[in-house]
Design a protein around this nucleic acid. Structure first.
Length: 471
RNA sequence: GCCCCCAUGGUGUAGCGGUCAGCACGCGAGCCUUUCACGCUCGUAGGGAGAGUUCGAGUCUCUCUGGGGGUACCA
């Protein structure tokens, strides 16, 4: 019997560099790696690419891990810390020098610039030290000797393939002055170390992939990983999301009251879509349907408006008590006198009216304060412009004072009746009362709110509004 | 400058040579209704341009245009 091909377990990795707050673009890359690994029964690996000692810090790493956990992207093996892999990187670099694939170079940036002024060759480095056979030294770098001829082709699952002329690639540095390995070198060596089979990353890496491949082949490694370069996430101006211009911090969204499920679902939609017409789908469906081949090639706009919609959807899907529990921290933080029981009672009134949790206090805050804050436009619209508003408030005060069971339904009926006596539909009649009690013309259902507020406080607020109107 | 990638309504996408070009967000209208929402219904708007292949092209090829990414002793 012919020998069986042993199926290789796919191994994908996410390798952030801990040089800043976790970025939504990074989160999307991590998510796609994770979806792929889960779909294929593979492994989702993490590598901490902290080879830049000045910019990297463990605090940034902690934020990244925090974000991954929040999104539920659990990883399968111990995190590889790239800085600890330095000996392996240098070993690889030395082997490249020994085999003639790399060389020591003592050119300073200034010297290179100087020579370029004389002759104007295309590209950056001119290969000055290629054949000088310089000895190792601490103030020298190691450059990779890129072949003068031939092409390097990147085979990519999402964009077919891209071919690069080797002649257009400069001899790039693989080990810095002082002996610090550079990104591509470390990347190649560690991907091999972690037995990575699928390199799924942002499109910004596509141009450096030929360097990756050149190093890999020079090291004698065969069986290239499968590449998948994901479309970039861009802003409204169609530029790559940047932490300077754009709102890109993942955890900032969490802190504003976006749900992890919603963020994960939205992120998945950036460059990919579930099979059927419904795009808000449980993560199980995403895993079941995810294929790298289906990832789109064109950049995707990170649209917070749509994110809000998705989040609103997930908020409405929460069981009422779950919603109250989830929204509670935002409420506690924003309100003077928080009352957990009262909040549990009124939270459902907010559930269909918010898209992010931070909006909950804005909607229900009036129930947890002593002082009503009047919105000027609302006061003008419902009180000042209606000459009958004071009459309605006085009627309401009288009716609410006694003779009404303090429940939403009876309150509604009583209010409808007093309005009718003045020829006002309920929609009209409730307006001044709403503003008197909540400070605004819009808000949660009024009679449920009054029920929660209580008779005494409601009457106090109506009196307050009447006093504010004046004689 | 050089290299590479991309191109369906305003936005995210479906489509894999023959569809009334589908879905979702947004926007508009209506219904529901105690305000506002939610929900439901209807509407709005699209294959960058030009050649070619083909009986037939958003789908294949080429050119152009536009956009983006890369080009560090950052990752």
């Amino acid at each position: 019997m012919a020998c069986m091909v042993r199926p290789v377990t796919p191994r994908a990795r996410f390798c952030p560099s801990p040089t800043g707050p976790f970025h939504v673009g990074g989160a999307r890359t991590a998510l796609f790696n994770w979806l792929f690994a889960r779909r294929e029964g593979g492994r989702f690996l993490l590598r901490n690419e902290d080879t830049d000692p000045v910019r990297s810090s463990d605090a940034w790493l902690a934020g990244i891990l925090d974000g991954l956990r929040w999104l539920g992207l659990e990883w399968d093996e111990e995190i590889v810390r790239q800085s600890e892999r330095k000996p392996a990187h240098l070993d690889a670099a030395n082997r490249l020098v020994e085999t003639g694939h790399a060389y020591w170079c003592d050119c300073t940036t200034e010297a290179i610039e100087q020579r370029k002024k004389v002759s104007h060759p295309p590209g950056g480095y001119d290969g000055f030290c290629r054949d000088r056979a310089l000895e190792p030294a601490d103030d020298r770098v190691i450059r990779f000797r890129v072949p003068d001829e031939g092409t390097t082709t990147v085979v990519d699952v999402v964009r077919d393939s891209a071919t690069f002329e080797n002649a257009t690639i400069d001899d790039f540095v693989i080990v810095r002055r002082g002996g610090a390995p550079m990104f591509v070198l470390a990347n190649v060596v560690d991907d091999d170390f972690q037995r990575v089979t699928h390199v799924i990353r942002g499109e910004e890496h596509l141009s450096t992939t030929p360097k990756y491949l050149l190093i890999r082949h020079a090291l004698g490694l065969t069986e290239d990983p499968v590449f998948a370069h994901l479309p970039l996430l861009v802003n409204e101006k169609r530029q790559k999301l940047s932490k300077r211009r754009d709102k890109v911090q993942l955890l900032q969204y969490r802190d504003e009251g976006y749900l992890a499920e919603a963020m994960r679902n939205y992120l998945a939609l950036l460059g990919w879509a579930p099979r059927d017409d419904e795009e808000i789908v449980p993560v199980e469906t995403m895993i079941e349907q995810f294929r790298l081949e289906d990832v789109s090639k064109s950049p995707a706009f990170f649209d917070e408006v749509k994110l809000r919609h998705v989040n609103g959807h997930y908020i409405r899907e929460l069981a009422p008590d779950r919603f109250a529990d989830t929204a509670r921290p935002w409420m506690e933080r924003a309100v003077e006198r928080f009352d957990p029981q009262l909040f549990a009672q009124v939270a459902p009134l907010a559930q269909t009216r918010v898209e992010v949790l931070s909006e909950v206090p804005d909607l229900l805050g009036f129930l947890f304060t002593e002082r009503v804050e009047f919105d000027d436009a609302s006061w003008e619209k419902a009180i000042v412009r209606n000459e009958w508003s004071a009459d309605v408030l006085r009627d309401a005060a009288a009716v609410y004072a006694d003779g009404v069971e303090w429940q939403a339904e009876p309150l509604k009926d009583a209010t409808a009746a007093l309005g009718e006596r003045r020829g006002l539909k309920l929609g009209k009649a409730q307006a001044p009362i709403r503003v008197a009690v909540t400070g605004r013309t819009v808000g949660p259902p009024l009679f449920e709110s009054l029920e929660a507020l209580g008779r005494e406080e409601t009457l106090r607020r109506i009196d307050g509004a009447l006093a504010r109107i004046g004689p």
